[in-house]
Amino acid sequence: MTITQQLRPRSRPTTAARTRRDGLTLPVRIGLRLLVPVVILLVWWALSRSATSGYFVPSPLESLRAVGAMFLSSDPGRLFLGEATFTHFVPSVARALAGLGLAILVGVGVGVVLGVFPKMHALFQPLVHLGRSLPSPALLGVFFLLFGIGDSPKIFLIAFSVVWPILFNTIDGVMSVGEVRSQAAAVYRIPTRLVLTHIVLPGASPKIFAGIRTAMSMSLIIMIISELQKSDNGLGYLLVSTQRDFDYPGFFAVLIVLAVLGVVMNFIFLQIERRVLSWHRGVTAQND
């Protein structure tokens, strides 16, 4: 419940009308948006020049150069991408997406069943709460034991860790579809399959999307954690190995790539949400 409560405000998409309503002119808004990043860069730069931390903190420019050296190249045949992109970035992102995809399948599937059948919900609720409260990163060892080495323990750990917000939001969303809508479906003898695909899922979709959004950012964190040990590739592995080799520009380069990855994934997600939930924006705008 607390998850969905926290999520509700964030699940409200920021519409054009909304940003216009803040009453800021374009230059002011852009200026405000840039303020915090500029301050961060300045602090970072100051730290890199300080006598005490300067050794561990490379300058922003140096870190950016490391990003270029590691993740980019001048070879058009490799799409201008560097070695680290292929050996670390792609496997990491693939595992995160596989884990997230699995979590979406399981979370939405199980969530619909539990949301539609109150008895199943009552039956499995204790189990669901138990699963959610397990400290999943600490279970990595168990997952290695269960699924061997390689990609699968990591994918399953990511899926297991991020499935909960999707599951809870789906249950919540299915229950929020409303009695009158199900009665209307019953009166008009809508076949069960269509009720599921055209009433239950769309009705629950605003909440499901909110759950997936949380799960997505969690999946990147768990992705890193799962690569910190027993790994020979991945961005998490690269964080460990650059530190071990005292390659601080490399370490910061990975952090930059992670930040960009988070921003890009969030952007793509918002684009998809915007298309799928355009009706929901209209409904909430009308009721506001």
């Binding site: 409303g178 009158v180 809508r181 009665q183 209307a184 009166v187 008009y188 003898r189 809508i190 076949p191 269509l194 055209h198 009433i199 769309p202 009705g203 979709s205 009706w279 929901h280 209209g282 409904v283």
Partner: peptide, 26 residues
């Protein structure tokens, strides 16, 4: 056929008007 009091809850807001009307006729 039934018309409910609360139209905003008995129609499906994710479907356009024609789809709402056509939906029971699958």
């Amino acid at each position: 056929a039934m018309v409910f009091q609360d139209y905003s809850r008995s129609l499906y807001p994710w479907m356009r008007v024609d789809k709402n009307v056509a939906f029971p006729l699958s």
